[in-house]
Design a protein around this nucleic acid. Structure first.
Lengths: 116, 116
DNA sequence: TGCCTCGTACGATACTCACCGTACTACGAG
DNA sequence: CTCGTAGTACGGTGAGTATCGTACGAGGCA
């Protein structure tokens, strides 16, 4: 069996446990927002090491954990890699339109600050 | 002259200085979210003392300052009262749809958690 | 003028958090 | 089995913040 998912488990909040405050808090950090934006563009799963964040590995782990525990992303081990994906469906069910408007707001702000 | 605005000035970020991260951070506190929701419903200005927050006056002052400095609300002195209003236009211009989807998300979560 | 109310300022406290380094684990490849 | 790579765990640090109490200032009212 190739590309088998590891048995290591990661704690995720269920859909009903996701809290708006936690989601907003998770997204209020520029580093985490960047991760979420790239995941949104990728339309698939990305490994942690795909992201080239300007912090150490331990800090990266920390940010991914905040995103996972707030319910913004799901994580699964695949071999030595840990794949990350947006929880689009859960977020859309709980907070329709929220993720999209946040992503749009981030894109607009980036364009605006770039002076374009 | 009645209802004259006091000469005391309050520092507000200009529209172009408002940052998405700061707005999301301001909204990630339940107390501040409650204030913003009531302001949205009121469709006008409310004094700080209108809100019956379960904290002391000094803490209330702190939360209103966070909201003002992040650009979410505007504040103006009117006599001894300090009136608060949402900066709907500025937020809509910078981040279209964001405020509405956040308010909707908060309303949905409240309904959901109330067990309705 | 004096008082009351609304809100501020300031100092203190306890907690959270972003970040680091080091030591460690898990897995796949050779 | 050994090594390299991906990521974790843990402990620590400095900054920010949510909270309080007390003392203060500004404005309206009697």
């Amino acid at each position: 069996m190739t590309t088998a998912t590891s048995s290591r488990e990661l704690a995720h909040p269920e859909r009903g446990e996701i809290r708006l405050e936690s989601v907003l808090h998770a997204l209020s950090d520029p580093m985490r927002m960047q991760v979420v934006r790239e995941l949104a563009q990728a339309e698939g799963e990305l490994s942690c090491s795909f992201f080239d964040l300007p912090v150490t590995k331990s800090t990266t782990t920390h940010h991914f954990r905040v995103l996972r525990e707030s319910g913004v992303i799901q994580q699964v081990y695949r071999g030595t890699a840990k794949m990350n994906g947006l929880r689009r469906e859960d977020l859309a069910a709980l907070f329709p339109g929220l993720l999209d408007s946040v992503l749009d707001a981030a894109a607009r702000q980036e364009r605006r600050l770039a002076g374009s």
